[in-house]
Design a protein around this nucleic acid. Sequence first.
DNA 1: TGGTTCACG
DNA 2: ACGTACGTGAACCAT
Length: 889
Amino acid sequence: MDKLILIDGNNIIYRAFFAMPPLTNTAGQQTNAVYGFTTMLLRLIEEHKPSHLIVAFDAGKITFRHEGYEDYKGGRQKTPPELSEQFPLLKDLLRDLGVPQFEISGYEADDIIGSISREADAAGREVMIVSGDKDMLQLASEHTTIALVRKGVTEVELYGPQQIREKYDLTPEQIIDLKGLMGDASDNIPGVPGVGEKTALKLLHQFGSVEGVLAGTGELKGKMKEKLEEHADSAVMSKKLATIYREVPLEHAWEDMSFAGINRDTAGPALAKLEFKSLLERLSLSAYSGAAGEDTAVEAAEAAELDITIVGEDGLEALIAALPGISALHVETNGENPHRSEVIGIGLSSPEQHYYVPFALLQNPAASPLRDWLGDSNAPKSGYDLHRADLALHWQGIAFAGAANDVQLAAYLLDPTEANQNLNDLTSKYGLPRLSPDEDVFGKGAKYKIPELEILGNHVARKSATVLGIVEKQQQELQETAMTGLFVDLEMPLSRILADMEKQGIAVNKEELKELGKEFEAQIASLVSEIYEICGTEFNLNSPKQLGEILFVKLGLPVVKKTKTGYSTDAEVLEKLAPYHDVVRLILQYRTIAKLRSTYVEGLLKEISEQTGKVHTFYRQTIAATGRLSSQFPNLQNIPIRLEEGRKLRKIFVPSEPGWSILAADYSQIELRVLAHISGDERMKEAFLEDMDIHTKTAMDVFGVTAGQVDSNMRRSAKAVNFGIVYGISDYGLSQNLNIPRKEAAQFIEQYFEVFQGVRKYMDDIVQDARKQGYVTTLLERRRYLPEINAKNFNLRSFAERTAMNTPIQGTAADIIKLAMVHMDKALFERGLKSRMLLQVHDELVFEVPEDELELMKQLVPEVMAGALKLSVPLKAEVSYGSNWYEAK
DNA sequence: TGGTTCACG
DNA sequence: ACGTACGTGAACCAT
C-alpha cells in the first residue's frame, strides 16, 4: 500500500529550534534544530514506513500572497541567525539521508503540500501531513490525515475530518472560515477584532461560513454586529489569506517523492559529521561515529598507539614496580547494583603505560601489593564512578581507598542535567579518542557476554587511559566555574561516606516484615472480593485501563480527567468519584494496601542480603539536577510515613546490634530557612529568629490577624502557599493544590508577595539572573544550567522559570545536609564513637547508636546539623530515637 | 519501553 | 490562550 508523508519543513525546523536546548557540535556550530527535526523524521519513518516522502520548504522571500496584502507575515520576528544557519545543514543532511525535498520559487511550503495533497486525494492515495500549523487542518480528507506536532516536536495529534468534527464541530473547509474570523497573530492575519476562537466557532456553527456570517448579521445585535459589519472586508481578506493555494504546478511529483528508506551509505558520515551519536546508534550506524571528520580519525590513530599490557602472573612484578606512577584506574563490573555485581577486572593507567588486570589475578596471593595499593588512602586515584568500584570490590573482600578524583562526579557538577555522562560521552566532550560502546564489547541484555581477554583488556585499559585524559581538563573547568571547593571538600569526601553507609546497610526484621505482608495480603483478598462482588465482574484491578472501563462505562461514573491513553483513575480522580459510588472508596483502599505489599513488603524482602540480613541501598550522587541524592536497590528515601498503615513498615528497620537504638534527626523547615537567608526577607527571617511556627506566622501576616485568630484552614492555606513559593509558584498550581478557583489562588499569592516583598524580589531577580547567565547557583556554587529560560514556548520557559526559583532553594538545602554528613562523619571518627550513620532522606539523617552513646548523640547530631552552615537565620534539627525507625519519630 | 500510579522529601 | 506546581524510584500494565 502506498503511503505518502508530507512534512512542512519550515514549520518543523522552527519548532525544533525553540523546543531543543542549544546543542552545539565541537566546532561550535549550533545543531539543535537539525537534531530535533531529524529525530522526528526518523520516528515518522520507523512508525509509518512511507513509500513516498518529501520535506517541503518555503522558497524566496516574496511570495505571491504579498501582492494582495503587504503586511502578510509582517508581524513575525526575524529568524534568529542561530536558526537560519541550520537550514543549509538540514538540507544537506536530508540529501544524505536520501529524503526528497521540494522548494518552488514563489511558493510556501504549505502551498506545495496543499497542491500535492490535492492530487493525491484525487488519486485516492493515503497521505499524512506533518506540521505544527493548525491551518493545515483544512487539507484533511478521507485519505489525508494531519499530524499536528505538539510539545516541541515530541508528540503528534492526528486529525482527520472525524477528529476535526469532534474537536470543533467543523468540516476541514470551515477551518479557513475559522481563521478568517479569528485571524492569526503569527501570520499577521487580522481577522475580525474582538473575535476569538470561542466566538468564531459559535458564529460558524450558526452560519456555516464567513460569507454566511456576513450575510446574517441582521440576526445578531450589539457590539458583535457592529464589529462584523465594520470589519467585513477584513474577514473576507483574512479568509483568502488563510486559504492554502492548491494549484502549484507540479510535474512528475509522484515519482520524485518515492522513498526507499534511509540511504545508509551516505547517512552514516553525515550524521557523524553533525555528531548525532544517538541517531547513529538508533540507525545502528555506530561504526561511523569513530570515523567522522579528520580530527577524530587522527585521534583514533592515537588511541591505537596506546601501550597496553594485559597482565598475567609473570607481569605482576613489573606492574607492582610501576604502581607509584599510576594515578587512574577503572574497575569493570557487571550489573547495575554494585552490591551484587561481580568485578571483571581492573584497568590501570600511568601517563606512559596502561595495564589490565583480570580479577582472578587480583585475587592471587602474589598480587597482595596491588591490593594494598588499592586500599591505601595515601595513594590517590582517579576514576569513573569510584563509589561503585569501592562497593563492588568491598563485597569481594578487597578494600578500596584513596579516591581523589571521580570524573563522573566532576562531570555531574559541571552539568548536573546532562543525563548519562558515561565515559564515552565524556570522551566526545573533551575531544579524546572514542571508546567502543560497552554494548558493542559486552552485548546487551540476554546477549551479555564477557569477551575474550585481548578485547576485554584493551577496552578496560582504554577506560582508565580515558580517565587520565579527562582529569586535567575537568580540574580547569571546575576552577573556572568556582566549583573546586564543592568538589574537593564536599562531593569527593561524601562519596566515600556514602560507600561506608551503604556497606553498613540497615538491619531489617524479616519475620515482622513477612507478618505485615500477611496482614496486607488478607486485607487485599477481602477488598478484592468485595470489589468484584459490587462490580459484578472480575477484572485486573491493577490495570488502569480495565478499571477505567468498569468505572466509566459499566458504572457510568463521570469522567473527571483523561490521560494520553484513556481515562485517568488516579487518587485525585477517585476522591472526586467517591461520593457517586461506594466501590470507589474500596478501590482507593485497595490501591494503598497493594502498593504497600508489592513495593514495600515484596520489594524489600527481595533486597535483604543473604550475607548480612540487612538492606544495602545505593545512593546515586550524580542524578538529581538540584544536588540531592537519590536512592536505589531499594529506594530507602520513600518509605511510607504519611499514613499510619504504611508508617508501620518503619518498625521493621531496626538496629543491627542488641541494645542499640535507631536515632533520627531531621531539619526543621530547611528549605524555607534557606529561602529566608538567600532572599534576605526581613519578615521571614524574623519568624525563624524567633523560632515561630512558620505557617502560622505566614497566615498571620498574609491575612493580617493575630496568632490566636489563625484557624486551621488559614494555616493550611499558608502552608500550601509556602510550599508553592519553594516550588516556584503559579496560581494554577496553588489552585490545584488547595482546590480553589485560580483567581483566589492568584489573590493569595499577591497578598503573600505584598507582605514578603523580599521574597518577591528574590523570585524576580533569580529569573533575571538565569536569563542573563544561563544558569543558577546554590550557596555553595553548585550550578544548574537552564537553557530553556529564553524559550519562546510558554511551557518550556515557565518550567525553566520555576526551576530557577526552586533550584537554589532545594539545592542549597542539599548542600547543607551533605555538609552535615561530612562533619558528622568526622565527629564520629575523631571522638572514636561506635555510632554509625546509616541513611539520608533529604532532610533527615538516621543513625544506629549504642546505649552508652545515646545521650551524647542526642546532643551531637542536632548540633552538627544545625552548625553545618552559618546562615542569617538559625538552622534547626530535631532528634528522636527508639528501638526502630518507627519509634524514632 | 513508555505510560500510569504512588511512595517520599 | 497556553496548561504546571520542585526533586526522585519502583511496580505494574500494555505494546
